[in-house]
């Protein structure tokens, strides 16, 4: 399987802090890759560096065959990369409709795609005219995901979508991502909830102290408790 995204020796400095210290990993085309790691390992920085929100001080980020490490954030997004930040980044003062209208950069919203999205994100239809600031946490997360996929994207970067969500909402989120996986979208998911990651992930990379310390298939890691203990310092079953 070819790689859609490849990071090689990526370093990122934020002020005086050296956060990413030579990150190397790949995201195969068409699958869901999970980026695991403890708090502060550099997972969010990694996504932000890919998006160009923080500039890589060294290294190369190849997307679809082109180096994007020096491109601006809008230029990266225009290549077909959707981004759902940890904060969700929804526009609270804009309605659900306006949030999605803005995200549909190419023109009016494709109604067939919208109907498809309503199938697995039904709350959006219900709250179509409501300011997004009035939605619950789970609904905001669904809106953030919907906004990232309102137009077909080649790659979706999602940062901890289950953070702070109730288990019933997480179960719903799993279904939503399964539906997304049926499309051609490649997904890079930063996650700490291992059940969620295991249910969806095809490949996995584990970060620690700004470096990738493991990469491989999710199935192998999920079946290897000793490896989990070694990489994350605790059983991944407890890491939920």
């Amino acid at each position: 399987m070819s790689n859609l995204l490849a990071l090689a020796g990526v370093n990122t400095h934020i002020g005086h802090y050296h956060i990413l210290q030579g990150v190397d990993f790949v995201v195969p085309h068409g699958g869901l890759t999970v980026l695991l790691g403890r708090n502060g390992a550099g997972k969010t920085t990694c996504l932000r560096t890919i998006m160009g929100l923080w500039k890589a001080s060294a290294g190369r980020i190849d997307f679809d065959g082109a180096d994007i490490s020096s491109r601006s954030t809008p230029a990266v997004a225009q290549l077909g990369i959707g981004y759902v930040p940890e904060s969700m980044g929804i526009f609270a003062g804009l309605t659900v409709r306006e949030n999605l209208t803005l995200a549909a950069r190419e023109g009016p919203i494709d109604t067939r795609r919208l109907d498809w999205m309503f199938g697995f994100l039904p709350a959006l239809k219900k709250f179509w005219h409501l300011p997004a600031g009035h939605l619950s946490g789970g609904q905001k997360q669904m809106l953030a995901i919907a906004r990232a996929i309102i137009e077909p994207r080649k790659l979706l970067l999602v940062d901890e979508p289950t953070k702070g969500l109730a288990p019933s909402i997480i179960a719903h989120m799993v279904e939503a991502f399964r539906e997304l996986k049926r499309t051609d979208t490649t997904i890079l998911l930063v996650e700490q909830n291992f059940d969620f990651a295991r249910a969806l992930g095809d490949t996995v990379a584990v970060m620690d102290s700004g470096r990738i310390v493991h990469s491989g298939s999710m199935r192998e890691l999920a079946d290897d408790e000793a490896q989990q203990q070694k990489l994350l310092g605790l059983s991944l079953d407890a890491h939920q």
Binding site: L53, T73, A77, F91, A103, R147
Partner: peptide
């Protein structure tokens, strides 16, 4: 509200 997110949308 959030100019960074607007840039992230392209």
């Amino acid at each position: 509200e959030d100019s960074e997110m607007v840039e992230s949308l392209g």
